[in-house]
Design a protein around this nucleic acid. Structure first.
Length: 218
DNA sequence: ATCCCGAGGG
DNA sequence: CCCTCTGGAT
């Protein structure tokens, strides 16, 4: 029998409450409050860990504290700094293009709208929502691979394969069920949960705090 | 071997 | 709807 809409809503809120207990104080691992720094750090965080990003940002921002400085950087120099992150060539391209566009189109000031942000090189919806939420306190729901997988298992029970799902649909569905001031926080907790427990290949359902209600728990 | 708090491009 | 980009940790 199909779960009613009301029941599902209550379950989702209960699950959120459990995640809040599981991760008592999730703050953005990239702790930057400066929008430029947060944007750059978030772009760098693709396919890496926050720890590694945090290990290169001091040197990066010491040399290039703002968009104008980064726009005029030599690609080689930037590559040398961010090399340990992997994908350093494409990331450097993104960073330089990003800094140029920021400098040229926005006077070096990070814009505050989804359309403007995603128009920047290397910035997609996920990155834009992280920046909007954490730097500007404009509610957004960042959807990455973890969020796709966890919400897929929790809500749709569909095979969580990312390619077949629609991140914007996930974004809309979740946003419809939670108040805006919880979006950023919920996304972050889902990501942490995805990394810690709800793994892609072998989810640790036995030790999952949501295994009582998760329709995919096995 | 496998995975990592994605985005651009074919 | 794929694929690629990349080094480092585990």
């Amino acid at each position: 029998m199909r779960e009613s809409k009301q029941a599902r809503l209550e379950r989702m809120h209960a699950e959120y409450a459990i995640l809040c207990r599981e991760f008592p104080a999730p703050k953005c691992a990239l702790h930057f409050t400066n929008p430029f720094e947060l944007l750059v750090a978030t772009v760098l965080s693709a396919q890496t860990t926050d720890k590694r990003v945090n290990s290169v940002t001091p040197a990066l921002f010491a040399s290039y504290p703002n968009a104008a400085a980064l726009a005029n950087a030599r690609a080689e120099d930037v590559e040398d700094i961010i090399r340990p992150l992997g994908f350093f060539r494409s990331k450097t391209q993104h960073l330089l293009g990003l800094a140029n566009a920021l400098d040229r189109d926005f006077g070096g000031v990070v814009p505050r709208t989804m359309d403007e942000l995603t128009g920047l090189p290397g910035v997609g919806r996920k990155t834009a929502n992280v920046v909007l939420g954490n730097a500007f306190h404009i509610p957004g729901f960042p959807v990455d691979t973890h969020v796709m997988r966890v919400t897929g298992r929790l809500r749709w029970r569909s095979d969580w394969r990312i390619a077949k799902s629609d991140p914007v649909k996930v974004e809309r569905e979740i946003c419809a069920c939670f108040p805006p001031e919880e979006w950023t926080d919920l996304s972050h907790r889902l990501i942490l949960h995805g990394r810690a427990v709800c793994h892609a290949r072998t989810p640790d359902c036995a030790n999952c705090p949501l295994n009582e209600t998760c329709p995919s728990a096995g």
